[in-house]
Nucleic acid binder design. Structure first.
Lengths: 338, 338
DNA sequence: CCGGTCCAGAAAAACGTTTCAAATTTGACC
DNA sequence: GGTCAAATTTGAAACGTTTTTCTGGACCGG
């Protein structure tokens, strides 16, 4: 069943297989009359092109790979949605792989992608060692870094200015009156966490006290709250390296009877949907997540489809402060967006 | 570069291409000595099998498709994570497609999957018309329904008992003293929303007042709160068709000065991570989401790898009540999990 | 020492497309 | 009606595997 091949279509339409292939791939090359005949035959027979045969002969596929660190994080989900949109519009299929933070798993996934002969790979690398990506590129697989600036200019990347974001966050906290600030973060081996701290300290003018958690989840945020409470004096404000931590932290504080923002102001990072929806809505640093995915995919597919004219770009988006209740100590609930 | 083929490996190892193929696919068929030679050659040359050629000749691929309704919903994200885990363990790649609730987009995506000659498809159908799936199966592509019971027994499906879940939810509300209850839901064309209502009304003993929103997002939940407030008397409790709605609703109520759970109890559905993390933690009906993805994938791959012995199964999981603060009117914050 | 059995490995034929040079048709123009 | 160039179409050779059929020994019992 369904073993309808291009030659069956050709027979039915009374043309040669080559012509059918042309109708499929370069319709402008074939006369309207023939094209119509072939298209009719395709419909009647329910022909579906065999992607593997096509890939094999043509030397390239219509698929791209996407490798993310944590598919459970709304940040990556949003990126993924953007990627999927663009890819699907251009007829590309997306193979998703989740490295779950494990270098080994990422490596295994990349091998699968290489076997699949994907046209290109979008990746948020799980660590700073990018040799394996150069190996991919040596294989003729385009690579675009997502949420990670490229180290050399012969490669595309799409990132968001984390240093700037960190500065903005802390500047907002001090602007609204905070004197003492604590930085709650995930592993400081993660570039994003490091950069945000760097920016934060630049704006703060001196080192920040740090609470470093192993994960970047609501759970970890709640534990961070306990840690914070056990350390004695509460700071005026807390800057969390992502919203998941911030949401957990707020909950932990609230339960201990600490008022947010009355006693402690909290600012997060990412501006995930739940930041606006939580009971005390969370001030956050918005990243153009969806856009990140879209642009990365556009760059990748441009590199694939127009290798001649393609110019590598390292795009750096600017994050944006979104003020909500969690940092409105006195102003109250003036205006909330969303 | 990287145009290292099986014949290059063969030459290097001093064997025939057929032998290399055997080492790759049936290592037990070849003597240890030769195998070692071949494996060395593979390593030295950096050979990566050409998946398309392999698929073409072998007649089947090492990929499966996953089609979800909304990749932005944590429910589907969790399912996806489960799918990815199992698939990746068994060496399968997952092609992700997001139908975004659009029937047309789903159809386009399924075509791409068919072209890719995926081994099977996991799908949460975007509507009740399942003919297109039968067409896929006629093509020799296995299909497993996810979060949707199969209509006929010649097909695998994995679902959760939504009627039972609805009953559990309302029973919990009445148990904790609620007399009047409102059902806040997404489009009632969605099976899940319908079934949950059916269960709820069965437990309630009579029809429930319904507030039907177009989307199932926090935003829509907040709008539902406004609607509820504008309708005069507040109910004792609200049952929301999913957690996203519930979180938005709670926020809307809280902002209007209504206390949750003091004035109105709220129960959600899905038990997404944020249900536990929100400031007033949300009582919810937990679905074994991750498990759903895992089991569905196991069924699919069993059907693919052991077509002879495979028995179609329609699995129905039972959801589970998770009590948190949003329905603890008087008991206060006794014990909270997570 | 011989005939038969087995096993490892070899050789060649697919799989269903795309591609490209060659062949054919078409159309314009004199 | 004939000629030439342009436009279409054809046909066969790849693409890199897997699979199936064979072959040449090694091994065994008699």
């Amino acid at each position: 069943m369904s073993d309808v091949g291009i030659r069956d279509v050709a027979a039915r339409a009374g043309v040669s297989p080559g012509t059918v292939s042309n109708v499929l791939n370069r319709p402008e090359k074939v006369s309207p009359a023939t094209r119509a005949k072939v298209e009719a035959a395709v419909r009647e027979l329910g022909f579906v092109r065999h992607g593997s045969a096509s890939t094999l002969r043509a030397g390239h596929s219509k698929t791209i790979g996407l490798s993310v660190i944590d598919i459970g994080n709304p940040f990556f989900t949003d990126v993924t949605a953007g990627v999927e949109e663009v890819a699907s519009d251009l007829g590309y299929a997306v193979i998703l792989s989740n490295s779950a933070g494990s270098r080994a798993k990422e490596e295994r996934n990349l091998l699968v992608l290489a076997e699949q002969r994907v046209r290109g790979v979008l990746i948020t690398p799980s660590d700073e060692d990018l040799d394996r990506l150069d190996r991919l590129r040596a294989r003729g697989i385009a690579v675009v870094l997502v949420d990670h600036p490229a180290h050399c200019p012969d490669q595309c990347s799409v990132a968001v200015n984390d240093i700037g974001g960190g500065m903005t966050a802390v500047r907002h906290l001090t602007d609204t009156g905070a004197k003492s600030i604590v930085y709650v973060t995930g592993p400081l081996t993660i570039r994003q966490c490091l950069d945000r701290r760097a920016g934060a300290e630049r704006a703060y003018g001196r080192p920040l006290p740090v609470i470093e958690m192993a994960a970047m989840t609501p759970r970890a945020g709640q534990q961070a709250a306990e840690k914070l409470l056990s350390e004695g004096d509460l700071p005026d404000a807390v800057f969390c390296a992502n919203d998941l931590l911030a949401l957990g932290l707020m909950r932990g504080l609230t339960h201990a009877g600490v008022r947010v923002p009355g006693d402690v102001a909290v600012i997060g990072y990412d501006d995930i949907d739940f930041a606006a929806a939580s009971a005390v809505s969370l001030t956050s640093i918005r990243q153009p997540t969806h856009q990140l995915g879209r642009v990365a995919t556009e760059l990748l597919l441009d590199e694939c489809d127009n290798p001649a004219t393609h110019a590598h770009q390292q795009i750096m988006f600017q994050p944006e402060l979104v003020v909500r209740e969690s940092t409105q100590g006195q102003a109250g609930r003036a205006s909330f967006d969303r």
